[in-house]
Simulated scan of single mutants.
Amino acid sequence: MNPSNQLRLATMIRAIQESIMPAIRDDAPLAKEQVGLLMGHLAAMMQQDGQEHAVVAREWQLMSDLAAKLLDAAAGDAALAESAEATRNVLAATDASALSFAVEAMLANTEASESFKTASAKLAMTYAKAHTNLGRAWFMPMGFDGPSAGLPSVKEQLG
């Protein structure tokens, strides 16, 4: 029998609650704090189990959509010709880290036209909001953020 991730995580949480936490002395507040963080991470992992690849795919989709829209906005802008070509090449290679750097190079080009700067600022803000909301929803089980009023769940954002 190969135990599921859910069973393994539940076993870890039980071991912490029943064996480790009671063994921590009262004069060890840092140890208690770290155990609490560990419990929070394990509980979040239980809730997130199986969604990791879908979240990474959604992050790629958001970045590649931004890159494609920036390429459209950069059409005909001579100052962006080189960085646009680099972005096209990286986009085809599906390398998320390289695409992020290529998009950054386009956005940071101070020689770009005013129309590109205006369009790219709007596109970047739209991307940032969607990416931030995905991250906020992903880490909601950790309690890093305030109330989730109006924030779509990870499932809703992936759907």
Rank of each mutant, 00 (worst) to 15 (best):
H131G: 01
E59S: 15
P147N: 09
A57L: 15
A96V: 06
A67G: 08
A28S: 07
W138M: 04
A78F: 03
E33S: 13
G76N: 01
I24Q: 02
M63C: 07
R8Y: 10
L62T: 06
E104C: 07
T118M: 11
S64D: 15
A23C: 06
L70R: 05
A108C: 02
E111I: 08
M39K: 08
G159R: 13
D145P: 01
A92M: 10
Q157I: 08
A105K: 11
A119W: 02
R14S: 14
L91V: 03
L42C: 07
N109H: 07
I13L: 12
L107R: 03
L80A: 01
A75P: 04
Q51T: 12
L151S: 02
L38E: 08
N5Y: 08
L91F: 06
M106R: 02
E59T: 14
E18H: 10
K32A: 08
D145C: 04
M39Y: 03
Q6P: 00
E18T: 13
F144M: 09
L37Y: 10
Y127F: 15
N89S: 15
M46Y: 05
A149W: 02
A149L: 09
A79C: 09
R14P: 02
T11F: 06
F139N: 12
Y127L: 06
G150P: 03
S83D: 12
M21Y: 01
A137E: 04
T94K: 09
S64Y: 14
A121Q: 13
M1K: 08
